[in-house]
């Protein structure tokens, strides 16, 4: 874990925060629910990225399972909202 690599990781983590903040802006403002759903989906992708970087930063693979679950979760969340918007019911 050489010095410059840690620096790069931190730099990337910071910029992921910026991306997350932008997504959050869309969630807060988003005129319609659909926008918020999209932002929510991107937020889950940003979260996956964040976890990967933090795995590297803490050099432990314990959190790697969360990546898998976040994918499933992100998909479920947005498709449920999409179906609700389209058909008014979820199942």
């Amino acid at each position: 874990m050489s010095g410059w690599f840690a620096l790069v990781t931190d730099f990337c983590v910071f910029w992921l925060f910026v991306a997350a903040a932008l997504c959050l802006y869309r969630i807060v403002v988003g005129p319609k629910a659909a926008d918020r759903a999209v932002a929510f989906d991107t937020l889950s992708s940003v979260a996956i990225g964040m976890i990967c970087l933090l795995c590297i930063r803490f050099s432990s693979t314990l959190y790697f399972d969360a990546v898998w679950i976040l994918t499933l979760v992100g998909f479920l969340g947005s498709s449920a909202v999409a179906k609700y918007l389209a058909k008014g019911r979820v199942f």
């Binding site: 959050l24 969630i27 807060v28 988003g30 629910a33 918020r36 759903a37 929510f40 937020l43 889950s44 979260a47 964040m50 976890i51 933090l54 959190y63 969360a66 969340g77 909202v81 609700y84």
Partner: peptide, 21 residues
Amino acid sequence: TRLAAAISTTTIGFLVAMLFV
């Protein structure tokens, strides 16, 4: 709207999860 509140609550959940990491 209710849906907006629902989605932002889930977002809070996600951010708290990030804190756990």
